[in-house]
């Protein structure tokens, strides 16, 4: 039968999602030291049947990867956690409704740069959607978010002058630059519908070639 549930509840039960790698996380019940174990279940909104996540049964960690179970981003989900300690248990504590399409965070794009004497060319690669295994089919977030755009920042290290570009395709040529000068490039992903954006990537710096004539 059901244990008497007088254990304090797990706290802050929520999905944390990056590039649709959807991980359920929570904090241990207040005032409980080591030894707390947890069970996890999840459900698809509109279907409602709770499904136990077997790999997260009687675990002592405070997270559970539900990426596989929530990979259809045309659906919404709930997940729930229950804590156990010395024969006592907590209530089942649920997340808010989770929509992978709008509730995921997006990593910055990968930036690669090359230069000539007076120009820099930039190639941007959007991150991939989480996949079950490395051999699995790669799906770019560009396919998930057709409205995906890039904001690109180019900084002249000498003059500290900065340009900002907003582009839809993934390549950018910046012309009319000074030869023999260092430029630093950083880029961000911006999705218009639904409204999402990544942070800016780290800076990738490169120098234009020295002027052969000079």
């Amino acid at each position: 039968g059901e244990l008497y549930c007088s254990l304090p509840n797990p706290r802050n039960v929520r999905f944390e999602s990056v590039n649709m790698k959807n991980v359920l996380r929570w904090s241990a019940p207040e005032g409980t030291g080591d030894g707390v174990l947890y069970k996890v279940k999840y459900s698809v909104y509109g279907v409602g049947k709770w499904i136990r996540k077997l790999e997260c049964r009687n675990i002592n960690r405070t997270w559970c990867d539900l990426s596989s179970e929530t990979s259809d981003y045309e659906e919404q989900y709930y997940a729930s956690v229950k804590a156990f300690l010395n024969g006592r248990c907590s209530d089942w504590i649920e997340t808010a409704r989770f929509n992978p399409l709008t509730d995921t965070k997006i990593d910055p794009p990968v930036v690669s740069v090359s230069s000539t004497e007076k120009s820099i060319s930039i190639i941007l690669t959007a991150p991939e959607k989480w996949k079950r295994s490395p051999e699995g089919e790669s799906v770019s977030l560009l396919q998930v978010y057709p409205g995906l755009q890039y904001n690109v920042s180019v900084l002249n290290k000498k003059t500290k002058k900065r340009w900002l570009f907003s582009i839809s395709n993934n390549t950018l040529l910046v012309p009319w630059l000074e030869p023999g000068t260092a430029y630093c490039v950083s880029a961000q992903i911006h999705v218009t519908t639904p409204l999402l954006h990544s942070g800016f990537s780290k800076e990738y710096c490169i120098s234009t070639l020295k002027d052969k004539v000079a």
Binding site: S43, Y45, G46, G48, E75, A96
Partner: peptide, 17 residues
């Protein structure tokens, strides 16, 4: 969404998305 306790029915998605 927190005001909606009914998980096994979706107005727009049930039975087909």
């Amino acid at each position: 969404q927190a005001r909606d306790p009914i998980r096994n029915l979706s107005i727009l998605s049930y039975p087909h998305s």
